[in-house]
C-alpha cells in the first residue's frame, strides 16, 4: 500500500507556509524601503548622542 503524500491537508499547510514566508519577505522589503526614505529625506538628523561620537 502506498502512502499518499499530497493529501489536501498538506496542500493547506503548504499554502499557509508559503503565505507566511511571502509576508515576511514583503515586510523586510518594506522596512528596508522605509528606512531608505527616512535616511535620505532632507529633514533626517542623526540622534544627538551618536552625532557627538
Amino acid at each position: 500500500m502506498s502512502i499518499k503524500v499530497t493529501h489536501d491537508l498538506h496542500r493547506r499547510r503548504f499554502t499557509r507556509n508559503v503565505g507566511v514566508g511571502l509576508l515576511l519577505v514583503a515586510f523586510i522589503v518594506l522596512i528596508f524601503g522605509l528606512t531608505m526614505v527616512k535616511v535620505t529625506s532632507s529633514g533626517f538628523m542623526m540622534p544627538t548622542s551618536e552625532a557627538m561620537e
Binding site: D8, L9, R11, R12, R13, T15, R16, V18, G19, V20
Partner: peptide
Amino acid sequence: VPHEDEAGFGDYF
C-alpha cells in the same frame, strides 16, 4: 492529529 478542516492561509485572511 490535525483534523480535516485544518485552516489554510485564506482562512486566516
